[in-house]
Amino acid sequence: MFYINVLQQCKANNRKAQLKLYRQYCDGMFLVAYRYVKNEKDAEDVLQDAFIKAFQRLDQFTGDVSFGAWLKRIVINQSLDLIKSRRHDYIEFDDNLKLIEDDDNWEIDEHISVNRIKEEVLNLPEKYRYVVMMYLIEGYDHSEIAQVLGITETTCRTRLLRGKGHLKNMLKEKNYATGY
């Protein structure tokens, strides 16, 4: 009941309620933004813009997902928008979409740390990096990733599969991966 009441107060433009909601989610959403933009100042800017957008569009929050999940999507979109706006050289990616069998095998050597995997994900080519991050770290499914990135689900699956292959090869080169 408290949660619904705070959201209703936020919709009524109650600054105290907005601050309460901000404080509840700001740290977690900052980390999400930082994973994408890799810079504290940029992450802070993304966070501020995301909360402004969320408060302006609070009437669009239907409750189908948790408020945190809804806000996270806004933060990721803001992060990607910032990255795109700073890109000077636009490269057209051609995935040569072919029917690729899904490979759900994400097994790697048990001695590799989660932090090491996250570091290697950041070294993936950009078109694979965001799909892998959103799938593995953020927990989005293919349809959600496709919607956020503005790509088809087939392209999403292809990029995830290829990104996973790149990731395994990178780890294998460093003698971390097994069974690939």
Rank of each mutant, 00 (worst) to 15 (best):
residue 3 Y to P: 00
residue 4 I to E: 15
residue 4 I to G: 00
residue 5 N to K: 13
residue 6 V to Y: 08
residue 7 L to H: 02
residue 7 L to D: 08
residue 12 A to N: 15
residue 13 N to E: 14
residue 15 R to D: 14
residue 15 R to G: 08
residue 17 A to P: 03
residue 20 K to T: 12
residue 21 L to R: 01
residue 21 L to A: 10
residue 23 R to L: 11
residue 25 Y to L: 11
residue 25 Y to E: 06
residue 26 C to N: 12
residue 26 C to K: 14
residue 28 G to F: 03
residue 30 F to A: 07
residue 35 R to I: 04
residue 36 Y to L: 11
residue 37 V to N: 08
residue 41 K to D: 11
residue 42 D to A: 12
residue 42 D to Y: 05
residue 44 E to I: 02
residue 45 D to T: 08
residue 45 D to P: 01
residue 49 D to N: 13
residue 50 A to H: 00
residue 52 I to P: 00
residue 53 K to M: 10
residue 53 K to Y: 08
residue 59 D to M: 04
residue 59 D to R: 00
residue 60 Q to C: 07
residue 61 F to V: 02
residue 63 G to K: 06
residue 63 G to T: 05
residue 65 V to T: 13
residue 66 S to V: 01
residue 66 S to W: 10
residue 67 F to N: 03
residue 69 A to H: 07
residue 74 I to F: 04
residue 76 I to E: 04
residue 76 I to L: 06
residue 76 I to V: 15
residue 81 D to N: 10
residue 82 L to C: 06
residue 84 K to L: 06
residue 85 S to H: 04
residue 86 R to C: 07
residue 86 R to W: 02
residue 87 R to N: 12
residue 87 R to E: 12
residue 88 H to V: 10
residue 89 D to F: 11
residue 90 Y to T: 13
residue 90 Y to R: 11
residue 93 F to Y: 14
residue 95 D to R: 07
residue 96 N to Q: 14
residue 96 N to K: 10
residue 100 I to Q: 11
residue 102 D to L: 13
residue 104 D to S: 11
residue 104 D to G: 10
residue 108 I to M: 13
residue 108 I to W: 00
residue 110 E to K: 09
residue 110 E to V: 15
residue 111 H to R: 12
residue 113 S to D: 07
residue 114 V to R: 05
residue 116 R to I: 11
residue 118 K to G: 03
residue 121 V to K: 04
residue 121 V to T: 08
residue 122 L to Q: 14
residue 122 L to E: 12
residue 122 L to P: 00
residue 123 N to Q: 14
residue 126 E to R: 07
residue 129 R to V: 07
residue 129 R to Y: 02
residue 129 R to S: 06
residue 130 Y to A: 04
residue 131 V to P: 03
residue 133 M to V: 09
residue 133 M to S: 09
residue 135 Y to T: 12
residue 139 G to Y: 04
residue 140 Y to P: 01
residue 141 D to A: 10
residue 142 H to D: 13
residue 142 H to S: 14
residue 147 Q to F: 07
residue 148 V to D: 05
residue 151 I to E: 04
residue 153 E to H: 02
residue 153 E to Q: 12
residue 154 T to I: 10
residue 156 C to H: 04
residue 157 R to N: 12
residue 158 T to Q: 08
residue 159 R to M: 13
residue 159 R to L: 15
residue 160 L to T: 09
residue 160 L to H: 02
residue 161 L to P: 01
residue 163 G to N: 05
residue 164 K to Y: 03
residue 164 K to C: 13
residue 166 H to V: 15
residue 167 L to Y: 02
residue 170 M to A: 14
residue 170 M to R: 07
residue 176 Y to D: 15
residue 176 Y to H: 08
